[in-house]
Design a protein around this nucleic acid. Structure first.
Length: 897
RNA sequence: GCCGGCGUGGCGGAAUUGGUAGACGCACCGGACUUAAAAUCCGUUGGGAGAAUCUCCCGUGCCGGUUCGAGUCCGGCCGCCGGCACCA
């Protein structure tokens, strides 16, 4: 009987060693004709805390799919690596003096051990770290290619900067002028502009990292003007939106990116400034309301403000502009009250010729559109609020229609209409060609836009909310930016053959303040001399943001040892896109946007062959634990509470009753569960089965400590079934068993293809239920072991060996089954009989029964129940057949009297 | 405010393009085995009514509609989660 005992710890240790010794998970490069499958996890930052049970939800899903695809005959690339540059290691270094490279190395060792424990079948020969020189050499290489490229709007692609045509007048002014011209157009550029400064993190952050004035960790972020390295992601706004359509990604993520990029179509048009030659360019999405313009508003930063303002208003305008500059973006945004000051100047409506006052108002954003808006209070809430506050005219141009409650108020200029309606008769001065009365506003807008374009007074443009990517960080533990600032004012990238530009050692990791990173203290490293000309220069001391390394790591996994290129051309073509990418939704507008951007640049520059990096994306759900909340809503750690009786939780110290609530796993709540604990208690296979059986990969779930017990129970049943069947060695089996096998293989295969791992496990359970107590042939047992293998790889290996198979089961192929087999095995089908859509019973008929026979059977049954079936028209009796097999499934008779 | 996603038993969750609602599991209850317990195995379990085990009614957030037939489609609400938000 000891033979029958399922000793998971011995089995799992045995096969863990076997896989390592035999490199079972090694991934050879694909050759011509190979089917390939690239499945990828978002690689982790190796933190000091190690993995908790929430991390592997996605890793397990990809492991299972990867193992299945390999068995199904694909060359599967399923690698793992480390996003190992980052602030925590640097903070740790500040506290302890331990170099980040060393603490990172230790953390990685823990992660790898835990991943091994879980049976994650990664090919560790392909392991990469973003902080290793071999890797960041290529991150710097890509940076340098971006720096030395510009966006050719005509060709709609990035091209090397050498291909940028230099106008003659610029060329005539010499080297610095040419550089300035190029620098204005590079995909990487320097700009002095307000940036997001986080004092606590000691660095500038990207707009994507600024969450309502807080950093990701919740530290305050303020706006300060600084000279910064930026990447021209806005050049790709259109393509980043358009190409979302071809991605198999969750709609929510695509929508987040669309919102973030914020595309809107509108028109720019110029208002002449009365009495001067100057003109103000405004952007609007509602040119149809041009007749309703009663003022113009400029952002305080707008360059024309000073020039426009007349003497009487100068003092007030200067004070306002200065006050606005001191306010943070958040203050300007949160404060909904509209303020502004009159400049004393007037603008001329290009169509009606009417003069309107020009204001400076801080509700106008300088970096969106043209930094100036035409104020149409009748049809824009913000303009309405402003006009009301300053007593400006409100001129409606759209009639909401007789049905509208607020019609009278709108027409009287007392309410704002931004919904649908029909154009009112045009105001005085509107040319006859622009008569749009009665038209819906969109149509009227098109007509006005046509007119403006024809007259050369305006043009249609597309505007985006997306801003360029602030790329530099004032930190130590990141990729050095390979730029040298020379004494003659020129700037170059470090030559590619001199990369990597190695991160120097420093003794002091403390932030230096706004402009520089701790690298500034490594003077020997910062100061450079050109060996040929003797010119001196200084290196850029900022480092790259956390996101740089993860922008392209999926490419390096394809060819991690390549010394000549970031990825070999043929290898890149062979693997193609990432077929399945699994990770958290929190990266929607960070990593996933940045990586798409870099990929498109690499495509334009001929370095990759695909236009998108990740074909299919799945967001795994968060795994939460629990904690307790007291009456004030304070969350309490789990060890401060006891359960006195079923469902009654008492805070030990106070004796007060508290409520059990779901909570993220965190150190402070003492509710972190590590995979080590779970594997120790239930085994890795049970952990895997449990995690995947809890629900769809995408949904959130709550961890309950004792639940893996049921998975273990299931695995014990599997073990008993398989070892018994192997020992019995039957050659034959009942038709019922053969049918169950066919169903099992078909269902599990389909579920795996669709990443429905919870129902796949349910199918394994159903099979066991179906064959309980039956003789099962060795060939069916073999198929069962193989479909079990992706889910419970350790047990499957052991069973496979005991069944006489040559290790490893993952080289044993995937079992086959086809529908025809299923059909042939069926000699009667159950046909459900409905009356008015309600089930009344069922009959068993031969699968080839025709509609007439089915109808007759249905009427007979219903009649037998005492129902009156006289006079039911035949065409009202609906016979439903299975689409694939054509077998009858159901027959419905209309409700009988 | 705008946009997207989601609402199914006591619980986690199943239900192809409209076709048997509640698969599979947990928990509960009953039973077997046991001196006993654990483990294991078998059975029951959406709610209600009548009733010898069968039948009827109600049931997928709420209200209405389309259909022979609606968890699924349409219209209108409610609630939860996520994104964007002074973006002209």
């Amino acid at each position: 009987m000891t033979e029958q005992t399922y000793d998971f710890s011995a089995i799992e240790a045995k096969w863990r060693d076997f896989w390592t010794a035999n490199k079972t998970h090694a991934t050879p490069q694909p050759e011509a004709g190979d089917k390939t499958f690239y499945v990828l996890d978002m690689f982790p930052y190796p933190s000091g805390a190690g993995l908790h049970v929430g991390h592997p939800v996605g890793y397990l899903a990809t492991d299972i799919v990867g193992r299945y695809k390999k068995m199904a005959g694909f060359k599967v690339l399923h690698p793992m690596g480390w996003d190992s540059f980052g602030l925590p290691a640097e903070r740790y270094a500040m506290k302890t003096g331990v170099h980040p490279a060393i603490s990172t190395e230790q953390n990685i060792a823990t992660y790898k051990r835990q991943m091994g424990l879980l049976g994650l079948g990664y090919d560790w020969d392909r392991e990469i770290q973003t902080s290793s020189e071999d890797y960041y050499r290529w991150t710097q290489f890509i940076f340098s290619r971006l720096y030395n490229a510009w966006y050719d709007a005509d060709a709609d692609k990035a091209r090397p900067i050498d291909a940028l045509p230099i106008p003659e007048d610029v060329a005539a002014q010499g080297k610095l002028a040419i550089q300035a011209y190029q620098d204005d157009r590079r995909l990487v550029y320097y700009e002095t502009a307000p940036v997001n400064w986080c004092a606590e993190e000691g660095t500038i952050l990207a707009n994507e990292e600024d969450f309502d004035g807080k950093s990701e960790k919740g530290y305050e972020v303020v706006r300060v003007p600084l000279r910064q390295v930026k990447m021209r992601i806005t050049a790709y706004a259109e393509r980043l939106i358009a190409d979302l359509d071809r991605l198999d990604w969750p709609e929510g993520i695509k929508e987040s990116q669309r919102n973030w990029i914020g595309r809107s179509e509108g028109v720019t048009l110029e208002f002449a400034v009365g009495g001067t030659d100057a003109a103000i360019e405004t952007f609007t999405t509602r040119v149809d309301t041009l007749g309703g313009v009663t003022f113009l508003a400029l952002a305080p930063e707008h360059p024309l403000v000073a020039a426009l303002t007349d003497g009487d208003h100068k003092a007030a305008v200067d004070a306002y502009v200065e006050a606005a500059a001191r306010k943070s973006d958040l203050e300007r945004t949160v404060d909904a009250e509209k303020t502004g000051v009159f400049t004393g100047a007037e603008a001329i409506n290009p169509v009606t010729g009417k003069a309107v006052p020009i204001f400076v108002a801080d509700y106008v954003l300088y970096d969106y559109g043209t930094g100036a808006v035409m104020g149409v209070p009748a049809h824009d809430e913000r303009d309405f609020a402003f006009a009301t506050a300053y007593g400006l005219d409100i001129v409606p141009v759209i009639d909401p229609g007789p049905e509208a409650e607020n019609r009278d108020a709108v027409l009287a200029g007392e309410a704002c209409l931004y919904g649908d309606g029909a154009m009112l008769p045009p105001p005085a001065g509107m040319p006859d060609t622009l008569y749009t009365a009665g038209m819906p506003w969109r149509e009227a807008g098109a007509k006005v836009a046509d007119h403006l374009e024809a007259e050369g007074q305006g043009r249609r443009v597309v505007s985006y909310n997306l801003r360029d990517w602030i790329f530099a960080r004032q930190r130590y533990w990141g990729e050095p930016i390979p730029i040298i600032h020379w004494e003659d004012g020129t700037r170059t990238t470090v030559p590619e053959d001199q990369l990597p530009l190695t991160l120097p050692h420093v003794d002091n990791y403390q932030p230096t303040g706004y402009a520089e990173s701790p690298l500034a203290r490594a003077e020997d490293w910062v100061d450079v001399v050109d060996p040929e000309t003797g010119m001196t220069g200084k290196r850029e001391t900022s480092t790259m943001p956390q996101w740089a390394g993860s922008c392209w790591y999926y490419l390096r996994f394809m060819d991690p040892q390549n010394r000549e290129a970031l990825v070999g051309k043929e290898v890149e073509k062979a693997w193609g896109q990432v077929d399945l990418y699994v990770g958290g939704a929190e990266h929607a507008t960070l990593h996933l946007l940045y990586a798409r951007f870099w990929h498109k640049v690499l495509f334009d520059l001929g370095l990759v062959s695909t236009i998108e990096p990740f074909a299919k994306l799945v967001n795994q759900g968060l795994l939460t634990s629990f904690a307790y909340k007291d009456e004030r809503g304070v969350v309490l750690p789990i060890d401060e509470v006891e359960e006195r009786e079923e469902g009654v939780f008492i805070q030990t110290a106070t004796g007060k009753r508290v409520e059990k609530v779901g909570a993220k796993m965190s150190k402070s709540l003492h509710n972190v569960v590590t995979p080590d604990d779970v594997v120790e208690r239930f085994g890795s296979d049970a952990f895997r089965v449990h995690m995947m059986f809890m629900g769809p990969v995408e949904s959130m779930r709550e961890w309950e400590t004792d639940k893996p017990a049921s998975a273990l129970k299931f695995l014990r049943r599997v073990w008993r079934f398989a070892t018994t069947a192997i020992a019995a060695g039957a050659n034959a089996e009942d038709k019922k068993v053969a049918l169950a096998r066919t169903k099992l293989v078909l269902a599990v295969t389909e579920d795996l293809e669709k990443l429905r791992l919870n129902t796949a496990i349910a199918e394994l359970m159903k099979f066991l239920n179906a064959v309980d107590g039956e003789a099962v042939s060795t060939s069916t047992v073999s198929d069962f072991i193989r479909v079990l293998a992706p889910f419970a790889p350790f047990m499957a290996e052991e069973l496979w060996e005991r069944a006489g198979g040559a290790p490893s089961v993952f080289s044993a192929g995937w079992p086959q089954a086809d529908e025809a087999e299923l059909d042939a095995a069926i000699d009667t089908v159950e046909i459900v009989i409905q009356e008015g859509g309600k089930r009344r019973g069922s009959v068993h008929l031969a699968p080839e029964a025709d509609d007439a026979a089915v109808r007759a059977a249905a009427l007979e049954m219903l009649s037998g129940m005492g129902k009156s079936v006289q006079g039911v028209p035949e065409n009202r009796i609906i016979v439903v057949r299975d689409k694939k097999s054509g077998r009858v499934r159901l027959v419905n008779v209309p409700k009988l009297g």
